[in-house]
Simulated assay, not measured.
Amino acid sequence: MASVEHPTGPHGRLLTGVAWAALLLGLSLWGREIADGPGGTSAPTTGDVAAVGRPAGVRMPPAHDPLEPVRPVKPHRVEIPSIRVTAPVVPRGLDSTGAIDPPPHGMPYTVGWYGSGTRPGEAGVALLVGHVDTETKPAVFYRLSSARPGGKVRVTRADGSVAEFTIDDVQVFGRDRFDPRKVYGPRQDGRAELRLITCGGTFDRATRTYGANVVVSAYLTGAT
């Protein structure tokens, strides 16, 4: 674990080798950040649900060329209309376990962006994380597992530009089958891609952890 690297390269290329394992372990422990347990009585991420994948017959639009890197432009707001999410975005780093540090407990309706990595709209994979619930109520990504291929994700950047992504895959990864390369790596080289991640699966009250992670993948299909 001591050899964990931070993302490097012009597009924040993600970790390799031991660093992958560290990031994997950290994310698998992320459920411990969710205080004392689910806030909803029927959270859509409860249960070891099967992956949605990409159902047959869903026509996907062509990919838009990645946006030119602009510094220091960063994501400002994320919208997912199909699951009624509109939330501010704040940059986050890695915590002591090597996982992306989610927003603080006092910001359950805020999305965290891995600020040392790719900016949404640029070539590579931009990572957004959010809580599924608090002690008493649903949080920003409570409905994330209900997202479906074809749905839109709009990220407004600090300069007012909007990068529009189309969801092409929804997966639930249990701890025993979590593949960091599938989660963090590009699905297609050269594209601008997005991953939205939260806790999922069954909540274990003894360990105060969730048994899985919900991972929604999307790719850039428009920009204004």
Score class of each variant (00 low, 15 high):
Thr202Asp: 14
Val58Tyr: 01
Pro7Asn: 09
Gly37Ser: 07
Pro75Phe: 08
Glu164Cys: 10
Ser82Phe: 00
Pro44Lys: 04
Arg92Pro: 14
Thr166Asn: 03
Ile34Asn: 15
Asp179Gly: 01
Pro38Tyr: 01
Ala21Val: 09
Asp169Asn: 12
Pro55Asp: 09
Val125Ser: 08
Val4Lys: 06
His131Thr: 06
Asp48Asn: 15
Tyr184Pro: 07
Asp179Leu: 05
Pro55Glu: 09
Leu67His: 06
Thr86Asp: 13
Ser28His: 09
Ala99Phe: 01
Asp36Glu: 13
Thr156Asp: 06
Pro108Glu: 08
Arg187Glu: 08
Pro102Lys: 02
Ser145Tyr: 11
Asn213His: 06
Arg77Gly: 02
Ser42Tyr: 09
Gly151Ser: 14
Gly185Trp: 01
Gly37Glu: 03
Tyr210Cys: 09
Asp176Gln: 09
Ala56Lys: 13
Gly26Asp: 10
Val111Ile: 13
Pro44Val: 02
Asp176Thr: 12
Asp159Gln: 08
Gly117Tyr: 02
Gly47Met: 03
Val78Glu: 04
Arg205Tyr: 15
Val129Gly: 14
Gly12Met: 04
Tyr109Arg: 14
Leu15Lys: 07
Val78Trp: 04
Ile100His: 10
Ala212His: 02
Leu14Trp: 13
Ala21Pro: 02
Thr41Ile: 05
Cys199Gly: 07
Arg181Ile: 13
Val215Asn: 07
Val18Cys: 07
Pro91Tyr: 05
Leu29Gly: 13
Val125Glu: 04
Gly130Thr: 04
Asp36Ser: 15
Arg32His: 15
Asp101Ser: 15
Ala163Ser: 06
Phe173Ala: 12
Leu194Arg: 03
Val18Ser: 14
Arg195Gln: 12
Val70Thr: 14
Val4Ala: 13
Arg143Pro: 15
Leu29His: 10
His11Ile: 10
Cys199Trp: 02
Pro180Gln: 02
Pro180Glu: 01
Glu164Asp: 11
Ala123Pro: 01
Glu68Phe: 00
Ala19Gly: 15
Leu14Met: 14
Pro104Gly: 11
Val73Met: 05
Lys137Val: 09
Ala43Lys: 00
Ser161Lys: 11
Arg205Lys: 11
Ala19Trp: 04
Tyr210Pro: 06
Ser82Tyr: 00
Gly9Pro: 09
